[in-house]
Every structure is written in C-alpha cells, then in structure tokens.
Amino acid sequence: MKIEILGVGCAKCHKLEELVREVVKKEGVSADISKVEDFKKIMAYGVMTTPALVVDGEVKVAGKIPSSEDIKKLLGIK
C-alpha cells in the first residue's frame, strides 16, 4: 500500500502524518508512507485544502485530520 500525506509543513500536516504512522505500526500493515510537500504534486491531485491523505493514488481526505478510527477504515483495515 502506498500512502501519501499532502501538506506543506503546517502543524496539522505533521499531526496527520504522525497519526497515520501510528495506525500503520499498530495494525502491522506494510505500507510505504511518504510526505508530499511540492505544490505541483499536491495540485496534481486536485487538492486545495491540506492536510490530505492519499492512498494508492486516490484522495481519501482533504482539509481535515480524520480520527484514528477513520484512518483505519480509509486504509481498508478492518
């Protein structure tokens, strides 16, 4: 699974990255997590509000921090 966190370094973006890493670690799934800070790449996803969560190239959430529960669901972990 390829997970990307879009954001240019605001507090909310860091928080989302932390949360995602936490969930992934806890659930023991193998995932490639990366942070996307380049505007061009962010805009290529059509996202206007950061932070955003992209899983396998698909935008799942934009402009807010989902709860750990929601992140689990968005990552497809049951």
Partner: peptide
C-alpha cells in the same frame, strides 16, 4: 469556508487554475 492559513497557496492555485 473552513481552511487553514497553510492551505492559502493550494487554494490560490486551485482558484486561479
């Protein structure tokens, strides 16, 4: 409209685009 000040750039680009 809810948005973080850190989203000002993507928002600006999104609007212009």
């Amino acid at each position: 409209t809810p948005f973080c000040s850190c989203s000002a750039i993507p928002l600006f680009i999104g609007f212009v685009e």
